[in-house]
Design a protein around this nucleic acid. Structure first.
Lengths: 226, 226
DNA sequence: CGTGTAATTGAGTCCATTCAAAGCTTGTGG
DNA sequence: CCACAAGCTTTGAATGGACTCAATTACACG
């Protein structure tokens, strides 16, 4: 079975496709990449939708979500500006993608992978590199979910966010407690209690109604996050 | 940054490389793929080793492992005959790979991805497809570790193994309880108790000193595994 | 200033863990 | 062939960390 044959679109001039999102023409020209804006809570695609596009985040935050039959939820990952998501092997998406905040995306039509790479070898390298990065993040998160305590999970999460989006030691959380809980395999109560304990222990400070975290003792956090 | 430049080997005739493992010449000719046999417990590569090769399993089972500083262990995945593992984005491996049973592998030298694909587009598709399959498996496992109970974890695990390696409804477990525990984020005691409970409930039977599981009520297991 | 949503805090419970011991298997040497 | 050792697995009892249920507080928005 082939990864990129399920949906065939028009041939994409791939040289332009993924590299310079900032330089993309602001049109609906599907051949290059469709700019798409969503409001907080809107769905990018749903579990089971035909897998015709993948996406790159221009601004905002997206969550990729899996739901169990009884409503339990697991958030695989949060995707920030520059991240690629929605690239999958099968013919349909295996998870749902939703806007955590207001979001701007660029959608790329999926195609036979070898064709894309033939058109632009660098593009192929980048696509593979981006997929391998996702895989690495997923593997890292398996350790968090499989073997870490609530405190350690939160420390890992905050450090990861800080590395990716911090200005100084301030992290403005784009998501709410329930998202963090469903990402870390905890409940919102435990998330809240853990943050409170971190404040008590001088690891962090909270600001802006708890939506900004200031890392006041990064080395202690790193020791916790392993 | 490019995924496949860290180690440059001689140009690989990729058309032969990944497709027909069974047809590979049994030589040490590194340009095609080195056959490698390991005994149970031996290391394929270690966390931090330079990432010069990736591997395809010919026979046996391999585990990929992450260790925390205090000895806690997470087994990302088990790799069975036909599976590819060890392909990573960075210059060094981020986990350890060990033989769960006696194992035969073929090692492929990593190379610039676009070069590989240029040599053989089908090979590129397969490599990407294999990576996306790993990513899908990792995401599926995140749900297991983040949101499922011990019973559900074990059900998911047994069904996955059955799908991949069962003869009829018999699954000969290649790994021991501690491996299962470290894969499912449980302790060996909980793994054992869960299996005992499944036997009591008529979901499975155990044979050959508990190293073979017979799925006697697959639909009930599927209901548990969601 | 009220209203609804999100976040925090508290009390009690439970599932999986830890600690402990016994039972099986397998391999080795007498 | 049996005895013994070493490792793996199972079982039991008690503990504990995160959960559930419940109530309160804080905040955003009309």
């Amino acid at each position: 079975m082939d990864a990129f044959t399920a949906v065939r679109g028009p041939r994409i001039p791939t040289a332009i496709a993924l590299r310079g999102v900032a330089n993309l023409p602001r049109t609906d020209d599907c051949a290059i990449g469709v700019r798409r804006t969503l409001e907080r809570g809107e769905e990018v695609f749903a579990d089971g939708d035909p897998c015709s596009c993948f996406y790159k985040v221009v601004s905002g935050t997206v969550r990729t979500v899996k739901l169990l039959a009884d409503g339990r939820r697991q958030i695989d990952d949060f995707h920030l500006a520059g991240d690629v998501f929605g690239l999958e092997g099968g013919a349909v998406h295996r998870f749902t993608a939703e806007a955590v905040s207001d979001v701007v995306l660029v959608a790329y039509r999926r195609n036979r992978f070898s064709d894309l790479v033939k058109g632009d070898p660098v593009f192929g390298d980048q696509l593979m590199s981006s997929t391998l990065k996702s895989l690495d993040r997923a593997h890292e998160h398996l350790v968090v979910l499989g073997r870490k305590t609530a405190l350690e999970r939160m420390a890992s999460f905050l450090l990861d966010l800080a590395r990716r989006m911090a200005r100084g030691d301030r992290v403005a959380l784009p998501m709410q407690r329930s998202d963090i809980a469903d990402h870390l395999g905890l409940t919102i109560e435990t998330v809240s209690r853990t943050l409170t304990q971190m404040v008590r222990d001088g690891l962090i400070r909270l600001a802006e109604a708890g939506r900004t975290v200031i890392l006041t003792n990064k080395s202690a956090l790193q020791h916790l996050g392993s």
